[in-house]
Amino acid sequence: MLFFILKRVAQSLIVMIAVALISFIVFRYVGDPVAGMLGQDASIEDSAALRDRLGLNEPVLAQFARFVGNTLHGNFGISYRLQEPVLPLILSRLPATLELAMLSVTIALVGGLVMGILTALRPRSPVSMTIMTLSLIGVSLPTFLIGIGLIQLFAVKLHWLPSFGRGEVVDLGWWTTGLLTSSGLKSLVLPALTLALFQLTLIMRLVRSEMLEVLRQDYIRFARARGLSERTINFRHALKNTLVPVITITGLQLGSIIAFAIITETVFQWPGVGSLFVQAVQFVDVPIMSAYMLFIALVFVVINLIVDALYYLVDPRLHAGSLKNAG
């Protein structure tokens, strides 16, 4: 167990260092950081001073060490475009993204599981056929079109829900939430649905195919031969075996919701981290780009660790050693 966790943590560290390296290379060598920070018409003396202060004249390894050190202290540099420190910028926009992502995750997970199980157990029923057809349309619709469609219907035509922004937010000091006001909640509905829909179809299809695969296994046939009821077979045996691979892939899919939020946030002008990043890409705002990269990597590494731990708990083949062999 200890070895398993240590191995995973070590692998995560390697991933983080690799991402940090890429992020450092982007930060250091893409464009000229000094010109980026001071603007094109800065004096040569100012540039030289800044260059010195940033340590750009030191050896590369020392610069990387300094970069990692700064990162660990939460110092990601100053945005070229907004001329503000990056960390507070990201932190101020984080609550918006996280609230959106959490709600979407819930919708996608619950909807995906229920519909996946349904379509696997009754593959020939009209309901399953309809769901499967709709899901195919679902994966063919780009997220931004779903967003535009929902806005058109619920905001422009029906005037039920707002089409952009977070509505009224309550500032809790360290967190701004839209969950406590009715306009905040209303504003959350459309973006959360948009973001959830694509993941929902993916999870649904995954659950379905895994479950169909499990239902074909010998132990299910043998469970039938033992006379167990269909309910026990489907919801005790088949479901548990389905969940083992589903946990892994679903975990990773859910992590990607935060990244997919980029598109949703742009469509709904949602003031989150994703829209900050898109603007950074458009304006080549390198410090924000590299900080965002590190942020996403951290999210994924953490999710990965949780998923591995869950996997380890669910699958006895990983933790229960073998007994001594006997005929």
Binding site: D218, A223, A225, G227, S229, P316
Partner: peptide, 25 residues
């Protein structure tokens, strides 16, 4: 039919490695 299986007719399958559910004791 399901009530007969296991109760009145038992089945022993070929491959013992795949006939038991790996996730249950």
């Amino acid at each position: 039919v399901a009530a007969l299986r296991g109760k009145r007719i038992g089945l022993i399958t070929q491959d013992p490695l795949t006939s038991l559910n790996p996730l249950f004791t």
